[in-house]
């Protein structure tokens, strides 16, 4: 009898523990990194669901007690789904799994929603596209502050190569923005692989396109790490040639990697492709420039191509391609 009573008490305690679960976190726009208010969160389990409208406040924060939301039958399940959705954004589905006799726990403190392609973000003015960071981020940098990041990246790029960085706001719809309005030696950064590749082939006057999507988070050891996906560099080709697309999604481990690793990898790719891209852009512009500018631009293209050739080493396809380009530039320089 005593054993039965004790067993019942333990059961009640465990049930109470499971039901005491509080689920909280913050929802952010993956692009603008601003909190998202009024997000809908759906709780789904085997046999039912529960929808919470306007679940996030002005800071994008949400918090609720599962016991107040769900029937006892749902709380007994070992898994639940949280579905975060808002019109114009790709919904994120988060799994909550618990061990028997344990409480549900949300491991993602911050949920980021990405706008659907072609849709207008909720705050167009803040929809920046600086998401590839060819930079070793100094310790203590505030990665979540776009202004600080822009300063860091610009400093790096201006000191490293003959170019400058220009931030572009709101790429949607992509067909509607022209590079002419942004200047000549412009680097474009946008955040969708397929569209970047399509777009890259259409460009003739872009210096290079570097794309990707990145986020930052704090590890359990409170160290800041960056998360990357879809990394690519597109170098537009000269007239009659196809652009060169280089993706290295597989070259880096997916998931979380250190900023140092990203920096090293990107620096190598960036340096190599930028030099070649500058040559191509100079050549393309030379073809439509007046005679004096044309000569200056072709000379610049030739210098860059020669420099690239010196570094191409034993990469035979690249050497052959650069040779061909160099011959083309030399031909164009002939009076």
């Amino acid at each position: 009898m005593k054993i039965t009573r004790l067993f019942l008490i333990v059961l009640l305690l465990l049930a109470g523990h499971a039901e005491a679960a509080t689920i909280s976190g913050q929802v952010m726009d993956a692009i603008s990194r601003k909190p998202m208010e009024g997000i809908e969160i759906s709780l789904k389990w085997y046999g039912g669901d529960h929808r919470i409208r306007d679940a996030t406040d002005s800071q994008g924060r949400f918090q609720f007690q599962l016991a107040q939301m769900l029937p006892a039958e749902a709380l007994q399940r070992r898994s639940l789904n949280l579905l975060f959705s808002q019109q114009g954004y790709i919904a994120e589905s988060i799994l909550l799994e618990r061990l028997p006799d344990a409480a549900f726990n949300l491991n993602h403190e911050r949920i980021e929603l990405t706008p659907v392609e072609g849709s207008s973000p909720s705050d167009p003015g803040s929809y920046t596209t600086l998401y590839v960071l060819p930079y070793q981020v100094p310790q203590g940098s505030n990665l979540s502050d776009p202004q600080e990041m822009q300063t860091l990246i610009t400093e790096y790029l201006t000191s490293g190569v003959d170019m400058y960085l220009q931030e572009i706001a709101v790429p949607a719809p992509i067909e509607n923005f022209g590079l002419q309005s942004l200047g000549m030696d412009t680097e474009v950064k946008i955040s969708n692989t397929a569209r970047v590749i399509d777009f890259g082939y259409q460009l003739k006057d872009a210096l290079a396109i570097v794309g990707g999507r990145a986020g930052t988070r704090l590890t359990d050891e409170q160290q800041e790490q960056m998360e990357f996906s879809s990394r690519y560099v597109i170098v537009p080709g000269i007239e009659g040639q196809t652009g060169r697309v280089m993706r290295w999604d597989d070259a880096l481990p997916t998931g979380l990697i250190s900023s140092r690793m990203i920096a090293d990898r990107l620096n190598r790719l960036w340096g190599r492709n930028t030099v070649r891209a500058i040559a191509l852009a100079a050549y393309n512009r030379a073809m439509t420039a007046d005679a004096e500018t044309k000569l200056v631009l072709l000379k610049k293209a030739e210098e860059f191509l020669k420099a690239e050739l010196r570094d191409a080493g034993t990469d035979e396809p690249l050497v052959a391609e650069l040779d061909e380009l160099l011959q083309q530039v030399k031909e164009a320089r002939k009076p």
Binding site: K44, W45, Y46, G47, S79, L83, A91, S93, L95, E97
Partner: peptide, 19 residues
């Protein structure tokens, strides 16, 4: 089989189904 919840975690890829 009647099973759920049927969504895969869109960040980690994890799934856990009661059936």
């Amino acid at each position: 089989f009647a099973a759920g919840p049927d969504y895969v975690d869109s960040i980690t890829g994890r799934f856990a189904l009661n059936y």
